[in-house]
């Protein structure tokens, strides 16, 4: 069991920055419950990103503790009680920061991977 737990924790670590960004981005379109978030990420990534529940829920609870998201119990479209998360004002600011950080990161990585693309295009 200790070993399994270790594995989960490692994944959180690996995904942490990105998963936070993905969750915050998903919530920008409106309040959503945990399952909804995982489905949204899966669909929007073209079924590529499968969010592990052992990473998703700790991340949600942590983001809530950091006051970037808030939760409340609401009735879902299927008439079921579910816990909905929604962005707070600080969460929105954090999202902007995370997005620009991501943009810088992906630009930088793209630059490293394709050093001559810019000159070749024209």
């Amino acid at each position: 069991m200790a070993e399994k737990r270790e594995r989960y924790q490692n994944r959180i670590e690996l995904l942490q920055g990105t998963l936070d960004l993905l969750i915050l981005q998903t919530l920008q379109w409106g309040a959503q419950h945990g399952y909804g978030i995982s489905v949204a990420i899966r669909n929007r990534s073209g079924e590529i990103l499968q969010v592990d529940t052992g990473s998703l829920y700790p991340a949600l609870h942590r983001l809530q503790k950091q006051k970037w998201i808030k939760s409340e119990w609401k009735i879902s479209e299927n008439n079921q009680r579910a816990k909905y998360y929604r962005l707070t004002a600080t969460g929105k600011r954090q999202l902007t920061r995370e997005r620009s950080k991501w943009a810088h990161l992906s630009d930088a990585i793209a630059g490293v991977l394709n050093p001559f693309e810019d000159e070749n295009e024209p």
């Binding site: 069991m1 399994k4 737990r5 989960y8 924790q9 959180i12 592990d52 529940t53 052992g54 829920y57 700790p58 609870h61 942590r62 503790k65």
Partner: peptide
């Protein structure tokens, strides 16, 4: 698909600090 329910609970609870 969900995985180990007990373990998910435990790692989530750890976030409560």
């Amino acid at each position: 698909e969900f995985g180990n329910l007990g373990l998910v609970k435990e790692v989530t609870r750890e976030m409560w600090g």
